[in-house]
Write a protein that binds this DNA or RNA. Structure first.
Lengths: 234, 234
DNA sequence: CGGGGAATTGATTCTCATCAAACCCAGTGG
DNA sequence: CCACTGGGTTTGATGAGAATCAATTCCCCG
């Protein structure tokens, strides 16, 4: 909404907390997240919130809009960042003209699908500790750190409350689970820096198998994103 | 696996419990479920199981295979039924040649996506009772009963254990939640027949909003399915 | 030097899991 | 025709994991 109020421009600098899409309003553009983190979420009337997917730099959100003209969840920036928008019509036209574009949309949709499928498993059947471990493993791979052992570290701008909304837990419990992973020697994180001391062990603890992310086909994924981005720049 | 062992034929009669896809083996076909119910699920080593999606008569599963060549979950029949298979190559060829087919695949993928997103919300933030209510509402709409009030009834071949695997609960607790809904007057089910006594109330109890199912665009959905089915029959 | 959001810690409560037993009922075979 | 069987359902008693409530501490920033 906010972002689209200036219809002519296509790149926006948005503040942390800015709402890109509201679940109750129609939306007619796809967003490409250049920098910053964002999330898709749904909320109940009484304040419970569930983040259904995290959007990392380079991610595209709102693909459903291409078909449905409406997203059933809201999208909000978790940090400040910059966003490119492409109108629904523009992508539809290009997809009709170029196989590559259509394929890119399908590919990214399928990838999102795989991630969501995995998340249902985590939320339904893993304990809080396992979910936490799985989450950190998934994040590291999505951010491009796919080493299977040794140590990995990266920065993560999320608050514990936001992590809680991803994992279906309370902030307090997230805190305790992080502590537990730290005392178990799997994690050595400070503030906003995640340090996975023992990748292999953390993966075991979280039942994490990286295959579903298809990170071994980075060419496909990144080329899909690049093609969609090019829609905007032409 | 089982089904594909006879490569030439394309319609199979399968027994309840038959495994159509195993998460650890590559798969190279899309399945169209003519009759019967099936499910996609993932399991841990120690026996926990989570059903990520239910496949109802008329549903298509395994679309991810078109892009990834591998599904990350298993698919199993919950009842006996009949299944049509279409090879990956065949659909890919047709999709390249006909817009309609490509669009159908994208549409169904997006719909699955919307359902998974919603399930994430249910598993993460709804109580057992709310999940149960939401599940029954979703089921009734997916089966074609989209009345918003009054009474609705349909037959459901699932055991309480299978429902538990959908909702991330234990069979015992599923039983108790059903009892609770019955004593609250929202439900009047016997054996395998679900009778929703008060649709509006059950929807409120489960925070259910039907929009995400896009049942109001049945033409799109069913025509997408029909087109894919036609791939097989030509 | 405050001020405020986030993180941490403790005490308590509640939801749901676990364990265990009884029951119901359809199908089978004597 | 009726005991036998076994999967599914129902019910009860107990326990564990996570939520809730409530302070306190830690930092970052003005």
């Amino acid at each position: 909404m906010l972002a689209l109020s200036v219809a002519s421009a296509s790149r926006f600098i948005v503040q942390s907390g800015a709402e890109l899409v509201n679940e109750n309003e129609p939306s007619s553009a796809v967003y490409f997240l250049e920098t910053g983190w964002a999330c898709q979420y749904m909320a109940t009337g009484d304040g419970r919130r569930q983040i259904s997917s995290l959007l990392l730099p380079g991610d595209i959100c709102n693909l459903d809009v291409l078909l449905f003209g409406q997203l059933n969840c809201s999208v909000r920036m978790l940090t400040s960042g910059s966003v490119l928008t492409v109108s629904r019509e523009r992508i539809a036209d290009l997809a009709a003209a170029h196989h590559g574009i259509a394929r890119a949309v399908t590919w990214l949709g399928a990838l999102e699908n795989a991630i969501l499928t995995r998340r249902t498993f985590c939320l339904g059947r893993l304990s809080a500790l396992e979910r936490m471990a799985h989450f950190l493993c998934e994040l590291s791979v999505r951010l491009g750190f796919s080493d299977e052992e040794g140590e990995t570290s990266f920065t993560m701008p999320l608050t514990q409350e936001q992590i809680a909304d991803v994992l279906g837990l309370t902030p307090v419990h997230v805190n305790r689970m992080l502590l537990q992973l730290r005392t178990a020697g799997l994690l050595a994180s400070t503030k906003r820096t995640v340090v996975i001391s023992d990748v292999a062990a953390l993966r075991r603890a979280g039942e994490f198998q990286p295959y579903y992310l298809h990170a071994s086909a980075p060419l496909e994924t990144s080329s899909a994103k690049r093609q969609l981005m090019a829609c905007d720049l032409r």
